[in-house]
Amino acid sequence: MSLEHAREARRLTGKRDNESAPHADAQREGAGLAQLPVYPSTDFRLRNNEEYEMPRRFLQLGRVMLAALIVLSGSRAAVSADQPLPPDEAFRFKASFRGADTVLVEIVPAENHYLYKDKLRFHLKNANGVSIKELRLPPGEKKNDPFFGLIEVYKAPVRAVIVVNRASKATEFTLFASYQGCNEKIGLCYPPIEKLVDLKFPK
């Protein structure tokens, strides 16, 4: 074979190799694509539905938690309503002068509470030249009490009027008060409550 024939043969061989190279690359790329996982279109729709459902689920959960908190708060309020009040809240007490020789004592029972009329007691301490002249109490309400039978009680605010005798040099004294009552709703009776109030005669 001559030198020119050899050169022509190499040229034609290289051309065929170049023409077949793109086909080989395409086959390799096709093979690589074939190995990638293929997801059905329904999978994407499911994901979209899940993303849409998530806020709704959180909203429903929030509503359930809110309802639970409301029920719990109501239960706590019911429990608190059945707890006994402190004595000073169950029966509010105050005393002050009404005139030169008259002391007005007011005791206010809380709701569902009552005072025993015959358990009201008053006397004076540190009272040089001062004494109780008269005690006036309003009529009470008749009640068949489980502890004391048929008695008089006060369910509304009660005012006790105490008139005192006063020596000319007397300027002050201490009023001692004792009273007792019950919580009618829960059937609880308080022990006797005692108060000391320092009072000065008005000038």
Rank of each mutant, 00 (worst) to 15 (best):
R56W: 01
L61R: 14
G74F: 09
E19H: 10
S20N: 12
E134G: 07
F58M: 12
Y190C: 02
I162C: 05
R10T: 05
G62Q: 15
R7C: 03
P86N: 02
I70L: 14
S2F: 06
R56V: 07
A68Y: 05
E111F: 07
P40F: 12
L33Q: 10
S73A: 15
T174H: 06
Y52I: 12
K119T: 04
R56P: 02
T174I: 02
G30T: 14
H123Q: 08
G74N: 06
R28P: 00
A77D: 05
A68N: 11
P157Q: 02
G99H: 01
F147A: 15
P22W: 07
R166E: 00
A95Y: 03
L150I: 08
D198L: 06
Y154S: 02
L36R: 14
L72F: 07
H23W: 06
E53R: 15
N128T: 12
A90T: 01
R11E: 12
F91P: 04
L66D: 15
L33I: 09
E106T: 14
E89G: 02
V105L: 05
K119Q: 07
N48K: 15
E89D: 09
K185V: 00
L115H: 06
G74D: 06
S178F: 02
L175D: 00
V164M: 12
F148I: 05
E51A: 15
S73V: 11
K203E: 07
E29A: 15
N18E: 10
F58N: 08
N144M: 10
R16N: 08
K155T: 03
T102F: 05
L150H: 08
E141R: 14
R76H: 10
E184T: 04
P87G: 06
V105Q: 02
G62N: 15
A90V: 01
L85Q: 02
I151R: 15
L33N: 09
R11Q: 11
A78I: 03
F44N: 08
E53G: 06
A156R: 15
V64I: 13
L196P: 03
